[in-house]
Design a protein around this nucleic acid. Structure first.
Length: 598
DNA sequence: CTGACTTGCGCC
DNA sequence: AAAGGGCGCAAGTCAG
């Protein structure tokens, strides 16, 4: 497959350098920024891989021009992976420009200028960097795995840009009504909504503190202590334990105040335009390889406001998430057949109970979370011996990752993403016995630091490999969705509008919703094969076809009923769920004027 | 007044 | 219903 490296040559001049597989240059084309979209559209008719410094600097403009890119190499993201991968000989990446690539940041501001002025990216040479990366990959200990990671990471960059471009359908009037029901009408600037005012009066009365501002943790703590309550912080969970007449109103205040601050009217004005919530997804934004987000808190949209995410008229959401992604990934990466057997069940925790490893689902869950996060105390600590006996390879893998971290070593995911090297405690020489210690650098403190780092590396291998599974899932799904639509741009076909670690939301024309649920499952199976080959570990999905995102919420219960949707995919039952529910108006507003935008 | 830090809480 | 891992964001707090 030919590669086309895109470069900026200053003053709005662009260049496309086309290379054949053997590395020879086939063609060099000079382009203006307005010619770019047509050039790429024409090149995309046959298989090609675009190579560019950074997807966030190129793709938004192409999408705006209605052009979709099939494959790319995002040099910024690939550089970041290669620089930290223990599979790579770092000397092959060394160059004067390396610090520049290390420091390159994605563009996430809502800035419509195609290329920011004085962009540090313009001082870097993508052709040379691409060559270094190809050499480093080819010489790496695991070119197959690492190559897959680089391809998946680059695909993720395309998905992220497409999701920002399309936006998550969001009904401002539904959101506004929801806020008004909970808080009262929108108040004037600088004023509290009437429900908060009422709660505030109640709280001040109950604690005899007429000047109390509950939003000030320090002030609140002093008032609570003055009332004789034994607290040292003001977290909701702490307050729930207390018995005092002012507490219920205080908890209610905190909950509603949080909603107002994080997802109130100001949020609506800042982030929702033209019926879409547009935030920026940041692939590789987290050290483990998970995505971060920028703007609007996209990765923590509270379930409270999800009823406002409503599919367009004639369209549906397909919401899919993986049940217990991380323990399944752990089973796969450790080759633990006993755990994989438990994962054969659609509820892995229930599968652990069925195999006799633990007595209850709650024990299974708490034990697995402890194994993956490093909980050693209490309930999860007590589970460990049993889990170790039953699942020696799975538990052994995370234990070894923790020990390696404590020794200051780098650990890596299945595809080769490396953990950051530790700083501080490991850089200095060991402290001799009897040697006077600094106050802030005691042996105890160092040990605590090392154990904390061990918990990080323990989690890194699982969370990071989980992120790789999800990337592969996304990348494959993106292509399947594109092929499902026969014509049109990305947002005219079934397309991804949201992604959160192990969950996707797809916006699709209603008649394709069934096909989408099928493709989303196939993509999950493909992701499992890409990471773990023929090792038999399942990744069952929970899939719902709904009118509103909120209608996909299900309660996780012991003895999970997750199979429900799979047994009745897209049946009249799942339609009736979102048509008849009282939480959103999807049923009443949809379908009355098919095809007409609202 | 500004910026850095802390606290608390939303999501997985 | 938390503990352990990873985040982003807003408001309060405090130093300069």
């Amino acid at each position: 497959m030919n590669r086309v490296v895109l470069l900026r040559r200053g003053e709005g001049a662009l260049e496309a350098r086309e290379h054949a597989d053997d590395g020879t240059t086939v063609a060099v084309t000079r382009l203006s920024t307005v010619e770019l979209a047509r050039f790429v559209r024409e090149r995309e008719f046959s298989p090609v891989r675009l190579v560019w410094d950074d997807t966030t600097r190129w793709y938004p403009a192409l999408l705006a021009a209605g052009v979709r890119v099939g494959r790319c190499t995002d040099l910024r993201l690939c550089h970041a992976v290669l620089r930290r991968s223990p599979f790579v000989d770092q000397s092959l990446l060394g160059h004067d420009e390396t610090p520049g690539w290390d420091a390159l940041e994605p563009v996430t501001v809502a800035d419509h200028a195609l290329f920011p002025l004085d962009d540090p990216a313009d001082r870097l040479d993508p052709v040379a960097e691409h060559e270094r990366q190809k050499v480093a990959l080819a010489a790496s200990a695991e070119p197959g795995r690492l190559g897959l990671l680089l391809a998946a990471e680059s695909s993720g960059a395309l998905v992220a840009a497409e999701m920002t471009h399309a936006g998550l359908p969001w009904r401002a009037e539904v959101h506004d009504r929801l806020l008004t029901e909970l808080l009262g009408p929108r108040p004037g600037p600088g004023q509290r909504p009437e429900v908060l005012e009422r709660l505030l009066r109640e709280i001040r009365g109950a604690f005899r503190a007429p000047d109390l501002n509950p939003d000030s943790p320090g002030g609140l703590l002093r008032v609570l202590q003055a009332a004789g309550l034994p607290v040292s912080d003001t977290r909701s969970w702490t307050l729930e334990q207390l018995d005092h007449p002012g507490i219920p109103a205080l908890l209610e205040y905190k909950k509603l105040s949080r909603l107002l601050q994080a997802n109130g009217w100001a949020w609506l004005e800042a982030w929702v335009r033209d019926g879409r919530f547009r935030s920026y997804f940041v692939p590789g934004g987290v050290v483990t390889g998970r995505w971060a987000s920028n703007g609007g808190g996209a990765l923590s949209v509270p379930t409270q406001v999800r009823p406002a995410a409503v599919a367009d008229a004639g369209w549906r959401f397909v919401v899919a998430d993986v049940a217990q992604l991380e323990p399944r990934v752990l089973a796969g990466m450790s080759g633990d057949t006993a755990m994989a057997e438990a994962a054969r069940s659609s509820d892995l925790y229930q599968g652990m109970v069925a195999s006799g490893a633990v007595a209850t689902r709650a024990e299974a869950k708490v034990g697995m979370l402890g194994a993956m996060y490093g909980g050693t105390r209490g309930e999860s600590g007590r589970m460990m011996p049993r889990l170790t006996r039953r699942y020696p390879r799975a538990v052994g893998l995370v234990e070894e990752a923790a020990r390696a971290g404590e020794r200051g070593e780098v650990v890596h995911t299945v595809l080769g993403r490396g953990s950051p090297a530790p700083r501080g405690a490991w850089a200095e020489r060991p402290v001799e016995l009897g040697e006077p210690l600094d106050e802030g650098n005691s042996r105890e403190e160092r040990d605590r630091h090392r154990r904390a780092w061990g918990r990080f590396t323990r989690n890194f291998v699982v969370q990071g490999t989980g992120a790789e599974w999800a990337l592969c899932w996304l990348a494959d799904l993106r292509n399947r969705l594109w092929r499902l639509g026969d014509a049109g741009t990305v947002s005219e076909r079934p397309h991804l509008v949201f992604f959160l670690h192990d969950e996707v939301v797809i916006h699709t024309p209603e008649h394709l919703a069934e096909a989408v649920t099928e493709e989303v499952r196939r993509a999950a199976a493909e992701a499992g094969r890409l990471l773990f080959g023929t090792f038999p570990v399942d990744f069952p999905l929970d899939v719902a076809v709904v009118g509103s995102w909120a209608d996909a919420d299900r309660v996780e219960l012991p003895g999970s009923r997750r199979d429900q949707d799979r047994l009745n995919p897209g049946s009249p039952i799942s339609r009736s769920i979102d048509g008849g529910g009282g939480t959103s108006e999807t049923g009443s507003t949809r379908g009355t004027s098919s095809g007409a935008a609202t």
